[in-house]
Design a binder for these strands. Structure first.
Lengths: 337, 337
DNA sequence: GTGAAAGCGCTAACAT
DNA sequence: ATGTTAGCGCTTTCAC
């Protein structure tokens, strides 16, 4: 009860042998006699000896901990990513320590400082929406700490990246909408700050072009939150030339969109189709259920972690920067024709 | 570029003074001359000196890290809790390291081992659904590591706990349904393993009794997943004496419930009311939007973390075990009359 | 087969 | 005002 953790020294004293012998015995080194090993192991087990990771870390100047910088934990996509990372890290016997930027550049900067001084062996990061300056990440690199960006990457920094294939996800979804007969597809996107938003827009535009359809900027408003949807979608529906499909940048906006469309007396999908992006828990709750692009967050998390740990293990062989792309998958439900 | 982190020794050598002087200068101790302080600070800043937390930890035998054991990160409620914990920890300059039990007792046990050997200064834990044996938590206590249970607590272990007020949340919601004229309220609950499930059932039953309504076990099936809802709800709707309200143990089931009811041609809430539990992102996506009990996960996380950090700081004064209860809040939307 | 000693980076008690 | 030393727990080189 209430005992302090036992150390090698304690074991050595109790058994009247030297600390180094205890250390070696516990590591099962061949030079130690079986007899000694047995008595050391027995004592250690009985007293629940646990190596002090702080001391170990001090010697090797590293702990087996990986830092994660994530914009917002409470987000289906990001929590899936986190979950994937956690599982993979655990499998490889790494711990994770998590910092949340809350979409704020200042907190993101602080997070890199925290992780660096926590001497993590590597960092996984996804940019906050407000980040426009990247010195803090360059500092991570300069500090010899391996860095992998995931999802919201920073192209200016020369390091590994894992992203969702937003372009193709968006392209395929748009093409699917076209194939079901939609002629005028609105794109509810996000601001130009994040690359993912632009990639999705480009996928959408290219799909339209490929099928000889006009790209009409007037039906491509910035609309990435439910409250924006409540302003923007009604306005679009009231136009004489209203859209016959909405492709939304996330499931929340898509679900809001469905409800607004219905409140105008239109039917989904007969009159107007709706497609989302994420495939979160919302997608099955809407009525009709939501056709959406699965972002595969869990897999992205796993792969980003794998990549980082790979770097840590084969630290010497410095192959060039790796860019991984996670294929998305269109999940067709009932909100599209 | 690629420089190893600089240490006190390096600074001392460069400035030709002793390590301890450097240490003291950086801590702004009064005994050091202003001149020395200035040159030390300048050098430290230029070379981005960061104290080595491993070394600090080794001396004090603690790092400022708190361990969290959580059943599943990808869960609106738990990710809210996590988010609250993270924020509070950051505010108090603690790091968090997270382990996921994935509802598996073995991984939960492993998590306690990991956290203990990581020498965390305290642990926040929520039980996995399958946990039936609690020695690993007793070991945490015996190890002198402060432990706070949150949400899914373990009554057998004598330590602090923070829970959601499931009983009253459920009682109030039921009473609200009654007040709107519902006469026959079905309760879609979970199995008896977790205390939270029983508390909610009791709140429901007591509200019925208080208002002189019968407690009918035939309309209280176990139904805590969408797939169960798809079996159970239709069956209830086909009875001659069908319920005129459903109170579901989580928002997912409630949303599924709404959709099934509508598919039977009934109107929500005119014919049948539906109430959920959580107030997650789903609640605004359903049509009609969902009346539900807000579990206040973020606040629960904040408070649990506060409690733990309080213990860490005032480590000496051993007041008795603290039990905190987070008040829930009924969020009335459109799925109830 | 085992022990002694140095050192990882830092702090604090004890010099001077 | 500054330096020296010991020690946190562990590994590892060097001795015996």
């Amino acid at each position: 009860m209430g005992k302090k953790q036992i150390t090698l020294k304690d074991i050595a004293k109790a058994l009247d042998i030297s600390i180094s012998t205890v250390s070696r015995a516990l590591k099962d080194l061949p030079e130690i006699s079986e007899e000694t090993k047995i008595k050391v192991r027995k004592f250690a087990k009985e007293h629940k000896y646990k190596p002090n990771v702080l001391a170990l870390g001090l010697r090797t100047n590293t702990n087996n901990t990986i830092g994660i910088i994530i914009p917002e934990i409470v987000h289906y996509f990001f929590s899936s990513v986190l979950s994937g990372m956690q599982e993979e890290a655990e499998k490889e016997d790494y711990n994770i320590i998590i910092c949340q930027s809350n979409e704020d550049q200042l907190r993101e900067v602080k997070a890199t400082q925290i992780l660096l001084s926590a001497k993590v062996c590597g960092i996984l990061a996804s940019l906050s929406k407000t980040t426009t300056e990247f010195d803090h990440f360059q500092e991570v690199i300069d500090n010899d700490t391996p860095l992998v960006f995931f999802d919201r990457i920073c192209t200016g920094i020369n390091t590994d990246k894992v992203v969702v294939d937003d372009y193709n996800g968006s392209y395929n979804a748009t093409e699917y909408l076209i194939s079901t007969g939609c002629k005028r597809i609105a794109f509810l996107g996000a601001g130009p700050n994040l690359a993912i938003s632009n990639n999705r827009r480009m996928g959408y535009e290219d799909a339209l072009r490929k099928h000889g359809m006009p790209v009409d900027k007037t039906i491509m408003p910035i609309c990435d939150t439910i409250s924006l949807a409540k302003e923007v979608v009604p306005e679009l529906l009231l136009r004489t030339n209203r859209p016959d499909a909405f492709f939304a940048i996330n499931d929340e906006v898509a679900s809001s969109c469905i409800n607004i469309i219905k409140s105008f007396g239109y039917h989904v999908p007969q009159d107007i189709s709706v497609c989302g992006f994420t495939n979160g828990n919302i997608a099955e709750a809407t009525d009709p259920s939501l056709t959406t692009v699965d972002q595969r967050g869990h897999e992205l998390g796993t792969i980003a972690m794998e990549l980082l740990i790979g770097r840590l293990k084969g630290k010497e062989k410095k192959e060039g920067v790796v860019n991984k792309i996670i294929r998305t998958k269109l999940i067709v439900r009932e909100s599209t024709k």
